[in-house]
Structure formats: C-alpha cells, structure tokens
C-alpha cells in the first residue's frame, strides 16, 4: 500500500502553469487580431445583401460574380494578370540581381563590402510613400531628370512618360519595386553563401574549379534552398502589394487600370471610390480569392519545391 503511494506521486506531475502563462499573451493577441478576422473575412465572403439590405447566406455566389459577371470579372482578371506580371518581373530581375550582388559581396577579401551592403540595403528601409514619389519626380517629364540623363548619353529619343503610358506603367512600377527590395534577396543569399564551409570551397579549388564555374557548380546548388525561400517570400509580398501602386498611381491604378493589382482592387472594392460605394462582401470575396492564391503558392512551395530541394548539413 505504502509502496504504491510513493510511485503514484511522481506520476501525477503538478500542472505547469507557467507554460500557458508564457504562451497566453502572444496566442491571444495573434488569435484575436489575426486569425479570427481572417476567418471572419473568409466567412463574410459567403454572404451578401438583399434588395432590402438584409444579410443573407449566398454560398459561393459572390465568387461566381467575381469570376464570371462581366462587371467584376474583367477588373478581377485584369488585376490578377497584372499581378502575375508584377511577380514575373520580380523573379526575373530582382532575384538574379540580388544573387549577383551577393555573390560579388561574398568574394573573399573584398574591400568595402560592409559599405556596399549598407548602401544597397537603404532603399529597402524607405517607405513606399518616399519611393513612389521620388521615382515619380525623377521620371516626370516636367522636371526632366530622366530625359536629361538620357540626353547626356545620347538616347533622349527613348524617353517616354513611362508612368503615364498604359503599356509601360506596370513594368516601370515593378522595376521601381525591384529597386526598392533587391536588398532582401541580396542579404539572404549573402548569409547563405557565407555559411558554406571553407573546406568545401578548398576541395573545389583542389580539383581546379574556381571563379565562375565554382559559383555555378558548387555554390549555386548549395544555396538553392535560400533561393526557394526568397521566391516564396517574393510571391507572398507581390500578391499582397498595394502601397507602391496606391502612392504613385492612386486607388484607381491608372492609366486606365493598367497598373491595377489585387491589393488596389481590394481597396477600391471594400472602401469604394468616387461614385461607387464600398462593398464589404465583395471586398471579403476578393480577400478570400487572394488568400486562396497565396495558399496555393505556399503549398506548391512547401510540397513540390521544398521537399525536392536537397539540403546539405555541414
């Protein structure tokens, strides 16, 4: 009898109150402000107002409207296509430049590496308001910095009011965004390159693999996981972008919606603009569509890309 009690005591551990106490504030704030509103938004997309301004459950009818009704669908597919192009420009320009800069920065005994790193990262810390207006001023035909500089190299005929032309505006904005954010891939790749152990590189040198071929054959395969992370960060960031377009082109994402992306489309729909009233239900529907797009992208990354990338443990 006595023996049993002795054994029973350690089996019943006292509840460790400190664990929930440590977790509570973060979990509460995160759940209340982030997770619940997110699900409330997803839920709201299943409702709409009747003629009598009563809220009724409409199932997926809002989505049918968004994807099929010409009044909404044209704007939606336009925003989605623009957003896709916005992402493509980032993948093709921002990430290769970031990798190139990181590769150069990480070359051994490069003088002034800290200065370059600090300077190139500066645009990333500036707010969209600054970036948007700075480039608007520089590209402005009135002020003439861009035409003046093109004139200087004899290419003045190439100048056009890029932000005002339908065919160039979106690409120009994407490139401005690339200018702003190139510091992020640069830093992450730089960190990944620094973590490659010297022994690996020395072994490569022994085999006569140096310079550019060392980069392509040894370093690039080793930093592929980082490139994967950068791609998915770029994807999430791009399909969530809003500020730069709003600041430089306004909520109407002119000229003639040529720079409209999902973020500005959501803003206009939810809050209304000019004569159109705001519509929380369609706004929630667009947010849900964006949620779906981002979720699909993240899942593709997690299950299709990340699991196939070989990770090397040093």
């Amino acid at each position: 009898m006595k023996k049993e009690r002795v054994r029973a005591v350690p089996a019943r551990k006292p509840f460790r109150w400190h664990i929930p106490l440590f977790l509570a504030p973060a979990v509460l704030v995160y759940t209340a402000i982030m997770i619940l509103p997110l699900f409330a938004t997803l839920n709201l997309s299943l409702f709409n107002l009747t003629e009598a301004r009563e809220r009724v459950f409409v199932g997926l009818a809002n989505f049918a409207t968004l994807f099929g009704d010409p009044r909404w669908a044209d704007a939606f597919w336009n925003a989605l296509a623009n957003n896709g192009w916005f992402f493509v420009v980032h993948m093709l320009v921002q990430n290769p430049i970031g990798i190139l800069l990181a590769a150069l920065l990480s070359s051994p005994r490069l003088r002034g590496a800290a200065f370059y790193r600090t300077a190139i990262f500066i645009p990333t810390i500036l707010s969209f308001v600054i970036v948007g207006f700075v480039w608007k001023l520089i590209l402005s035909p009135i002020w003439g910095i861009a035409p003046g500089m093109l004139d200087f190299v004899g290419l003045k005929s190439l100048f056009a009011p890029w932000l005002g032309k339908e065919e160039y505006a979106l690409t120009t904005l994407a490139l401005i965004s690339v200018w702003q954010f190139v510091g992020i891939p640069m830093m992450l790749i730089y960190a990944a390159l620094l973590s490659i152990p010297d022994e690996v590189l020395e072994a490569a040198e022994m085999d006569g693999i140096t310079g550019a071929s060392q980069f392509w054959k040894i370093k690039l395969p080793l930093i592929l996981p980082s490139i994967g992370i950068i791609s998915i960060l770029t994807f999430v960031g791009n399909f969530n972008a809003f500020d730069l377009i709003y600041v430089s082109q306004g909520a109407l994402a002119g000229p003639d919606f040529a720079t409209d992306i999902l973020g500005t489309f959501l803003y206009r729909t939810f809050f209304g603009f000019q004569l159109q009233l705001g519509d929380p239900h369609m706004g929630a529907t667009i947010a849900t569509a964006m949620f779906g797009i981002i979720l699909v992208g993240v899942c593709i990354y997690l299950f299709a890309i990340q699991t196939r990338l070989r990770r090397y443990q040093f």
Partner: peptide, 23 residues
C-alpha cells in the same frame, strides 16, 4: 502551437482587414 504561430509568416494580416475594421 509552433506551426499555428508560424502560419502568420506566410499569410499576410491584410487579408483580414475587412473583419479587423469591423472589430
């Protein structure tokens, strides 16, 4: 719990704006 808290790294909080404003 770790995964639950990490979810927010990938899903932007902006998508909940409609409900955050109502809240």
């Amino acid at each position: 719990m770790g995964l639950y808290l990490a979810l927010g790294i990938m899903i932007p909080i902006r998508l909940g704006t409609v409900a955050i404003l109502q809240l």
